[in-house]
Amino acid sequence: MKGLHLTADLYRCRCEAAWLTDAAKLGAWCVEAVQAVGLEAVDHLFHTFPATAKGPGGVTATVLLAESHVCLHTWPEERAVTCDVYVCNFSGDHSAKARGLMYALVNRFQPEWTEQRSLDRGEE
């Protein structure tokens, strides 16, 4: 079960507001980004939450990968996003692809700052 788990918390995102509120737009782009780095999407779920008194609802976008998953959660009222990319390295080392995908995700949202973490999972 050896794998790589990357997380990023993105703050004060300067992207177009639709990237934080439009599940279909964000989801379609996520699938394209997965394919662009050479990972394989096998299913997906994109959901927009209802608006609240604080503003428009956020989005959860999840893409199931043959290699594991990518998941995003947006908070438009805070212009914030959390990103999760996990790949197992059972059939080969997908670590570079996971890092490339995380790089694309962070760039999509143009945050003023990020907090990123990397966790090696499983035994050698």
Rank of each mutant, 00 (worst) to 15 (best):
V34A: 03
L101P: 06
Q116H: 12
V70H: 08
V42K: 07
D93P: 06
R14M: 08
V81I: 07
A36G: 08
V34F: 09
T48S: 11
G57D: 09
T114D: 12
P56K: 05
D22S: 06
R14A: 13
S68T: 10
A36K: 13
T60N: 13
H73I: 03
Q35W: 15
F49D: 02
A8C: 13
C15E: 00
L65A: 01
R12T: 11
M102N: 03
W29M: 13
Y103E: 12
C83T: 05
G57S: 06
R108V: 08
A98V: 01
H69A: 09
S95H: 06
L101G: 09
L26N: 02
A41L: 10
H44C: 15
L39D: 06
P111K: 07
A96F: 13
S118H: 12
D43Q: 08
K54D: 14
A18G: 05
P76N: 08
C30D: 07
L26E: 04
M102P: 00
R108Y: 07
L20T: 02
L105D: 04
T60K: 10
K97W: 05
A18F: 10
A33E: 09
L45T: 15
L72D: 01
A18L: 14
G55E: 02
E78V: 07
Q35N: 15
D120F: 13
D22Q: 05
A8T: 05
G57M: 03
G27C: 07
G55K: 02
M102I: 08
L39W: 00
L26D: 04
T52P: 09
E124W: 15
T62V: 14
R79G: 04
T7M: 07
C71E: 14
C71P: 04
L26H: 02
K2L: 15
H94P: 02
E40F: 15
L45I: 13
W75L: 04
G38S: 07
A18Q: 13
W113C: 15
K97C: 13
Q116P: 04
A80W: 00
D9A: 09
V63R: 02
K2P: 02
T60S: 12
V34I: 11
K54E: 15
A80Y: 00
G57I: 02
S91G: 01
E32P: 00
E112G: 14
D120M: 14
A51G: 12
V63F: 10
R121V: 06
T62P: 05
L64G: 13
V42W: 04
L26T: 03
S91Y: 15
H47G: 14
V31W: 10
N107D: 14
R12P: 00
L72F: 03
T52W: 02
Q116R: 04
T74C: 03
Y103T: 09
Q116E: 15
L105M: 07
